[in-house]
Amino acid sequence: MQHRISHEQDAELDAGRGPVGPDVEARLSAELAAVVAGARRRALRDGDRQIDTAHLLHTLLESDPEAREAFGSGPQIARLLGYLVQRSIGYGLRWQSSVENSGAVPVVTEDGWSPVAAGVMAAAYERAVRRGGLLADGVDLLAALAAEPGSRAVEVLGRAGVDVRELLVRLDGVMAERGLEA
């Protein structure tokens, strides 16, 4: 799938900023674009105003085998998915109608993303660029999610018993391997 990059997007990259808003979706692999579409459906079904990092994490783990592999072969992925299902059927009610916010930008975005999720998507793309890729993929997104302290995704990972620092080390290893392949 070929994505067109506008002059405005080129200027954003030259300015050192990642894509924001709808432009972020032009920087995704086909698989990751499907994850975003699934997260959008999940947010709507859950009655949430915006896609948050927990929606992204849930849909990513359901659909991306490489992202699931980062958790190893033990029971951790089953525990994590079970926790995410609980979140979608009730636990997340305390998040409903609230905006996931880092505290740095107390603004509601108008493009369907929580401010934190929009930043994570930009970080996933920046990670792809650092490894020499043109499009972000599931491992890029998982690393960006895990690297965002205070996000709903990191809260879910912690409650499911995932050591986020260890996960980031494993994902950095995947990035290094890919860098050698690129």
Rank of each mutant, 00 (worst) to 15 (best):
M1R: 12
Q2E: 11
H3C: 13
D10R: 05
A15E: 15
G16V: 00
R17S: 11
G18N: 00
P19L: 07
D23L: 04
V24F: 03
R27Q: 12
L28Q: 10
L28E: 11
E31Y: 03
E31Q: 11
A34Y: 04
A37D: 05
A39C: 10
R41K: 10
R42Y: 00
L44C: 01
D46A: 14
Q50K: 11
H58Q: 09
E62Q: 13
P65F: 00
E66M: 12
A70K: 01
A70N: 01
S73I: 02
G74Q: 15
P75I: 06
I77V: 08
A78L: 14
A78I: 06
A78R: 15
R79F: 02
R79K: 08
V85H: 13
V85A: 14
V85Y: 14
I89L: 13
G90W: 02
Y91E: 13
G92M: 07
G92C: 08
G92A: 09
R94T: 12
S98P: 05
S102M: 03
P106Q: 07
V107K: 09
V107E: 15
E110I: 06
D111N: 11
W113I: 03
P115D: 12
A118W: 08
M121A: 15
A122Q: 00
A124W: 03
A124S: 05
Y125Q: 10
E126D: 12
E126K: 05
E126N: 07
E126M: 10
L134S: 09
L134Y: 05
L135M: 13
L142V: 14
A144C: 10
L145Y: 14
A146D: 03
A146L: 03
A146Q: 02
A147K: 02
A147E: 04
P149F: 05
G150T: 10
S151L: 06
R152C: 03
R152A: 06
A153E: 05
V154T: 15
E155L: 15
L157K: 01
L157H: 01
A160L: 06
A160T: 05
G161S: 03
D163Y: 04
V164D: 01
R165E: 15
E166T: 06
L167M: 06
L167G: 00
L168K: 02
L171A: 04
V174H: 06
V174N: 03
L180W: 07
E181L: 13
